[in-house]
Design a protein around this nucleic acid. Structure first.
Length: 357
DNA sequence: AAACCGGGGTC
DNA sequence: GACCCAGGTTT
């Protein structure tokens, strides 16, 4: 039988381990509420290693909430280029403006008010309340859910909302009155360094003696996750059009894939449609007429969480005036300051290989 | 409850 | 290639 969880010994053992083993992360150096906010938004569904360089660049460019509020959205998105889930950047920017212009410049300090901010859901509100404002609450992310499921011996799928809620309810009982923020980070750190998804390192775990999954020899089957649907395959055609050394780019509309980022003009192939025809539609939608033939210049594949995208890239000459505002002719040296996705970069890289005619 | 929204680390 | 990650919003 595992040791009883009700004793404060579990939290104490975890905190001792945390202070000895915690990683030196940039947002732990000057743990202001602003730095916590930026890091939490960046870390949503994103591994720590991927976030570190983005956090450094972002907070250097926007050192304060006020500086961020004063920035253009385009510049905020540009610093997010390649990190993914671009709505997070817009939400962070909107939150900064809302706090500076309507809340007097200070973030709310309680969970309920934090929850009202754009991009701040149940997890992030709890994380900010605990870490930045020392509130006794427990943010339950993927790591913490796994740790709790194992400690508590939860055998139902942890990605179900009702199960997640139960884990949180039980988990909050473990939070000590002192240093709830360290406890939250310690739970996450345990999940990241010790209570690993596939091969947990139980011999070095500070709370192994409290763990039901460990006692039952079930760390391999806990946690359980519901099956996720297969990703759908989509075929796209995109076109590189140049004028006077500039490349034509369009901005993805709001509420679509890669919203707000710049890509080559593109269209999804309809059932049975040839790629060249879809490519012509992409330009016709901008008010351009293709002159001569489309030249195939490459193919690329890009896998998203829910889409497996394959794209054919063409080059073409086109006449006519652009009819929509979210399109522009871009010089090569302007690319660095534009919000681009990794997918967009791949297409542009292929387009750049084509000789300028 | 389920779908949508990126990208990459890691085994 | 599969799995997972300091999730939120919309439907």
């Amino acid at each position: 039988m595992p040791a009883p969880l009700s004793s404060p010994a579990c939290a104490r053992a975890l905190l001792v381990w945390y202070h000895r083993k915690k990683r030196d992360l940039p947002w732990r150096r000057e743990p202001s509420a602003y730095h916590t906010l930026v890091s939490e938004l960046m870390l949503q569904q994103t591994v720590v290693a991927a976030v570190v360089p983005y956090f450094e660049r972002f907070t250097t460019r926007f050192p304060t909430l006020q500086a961020l509020a004063a920035a253009r959205e385009e510049d905020v998105l540009a610093l997010w280029s390649g990190l993914g889930y671009y709505s997070r950047a817009r939400h962070l920017h909107r939150t900064a403006r809302l706090v500076v212009h309507q809340l007097g410049g200070a973030l709310p300090s309680n969970e309920e008010d934090l929850r009202q901010l754009p991009g701040v859901g149940a997890y992030t509100a709890a994380a900010l309340a605990a870490i930045a404002f020392s509130r006794r609450t427990l943010p339950v992310d993927g790591n913490v859910a796994r740790v709790l499921a194992r400690i508590l011996g939860e055998r139902r799928p942890i990605d179900r909302p009702a199960v997640r809620a139960g884990l949180r309810l039980q988990g909050e009982k473990l939070v000590p009155a002192q240093r709830p923020g360290d406890f939250a980070q310690a739970m996450m750190e345990l999940g990241a360094l010790c209570c690993l998804p596939r091969q947990p390192r139980c011999p070095q775990c500070p709370v192994a003696r409290f763990c039901r999954a460990r006692a039952q020899g079930a760390t391999g089957s806990i946690p359980l996750r519901a099956k996720r649907p297969a990703r759908r395959r989509i075929h796209l055609a995109c076109v590189a059009v140049r004028r006077r050394g500039r490349l034509l780019l369009v901005r993805r509309p709001a509420k679509t894939l890669l919203a707000g980022t710049w890509v080559l003009p593109l269209q999804e192939l309809r059932a049975g449609e040839a790629a060249t025809r879809a490519a012509r539609r992409a330009l016709a939608g901008l008010g351009l007429r293709v002159e001569g033939s489309l030249r195939p210049v490459g193919n690329l594949r890009h896998v998203f969480t829910h889409r497996d995208a394959r794209a054919s890239v063409f080059s073409a000459h086109a006449r006519g005036r652009i009819e929509i505002p979210d399109a522009r002719w871009v010089r090569a040296d302007e690319l660095a300051s534009l919000p681009l996705s990794t997918f967009g970069r791949k297409m542009i890289a292929i387009a750049q290989r084509v000789a300028i005619v």
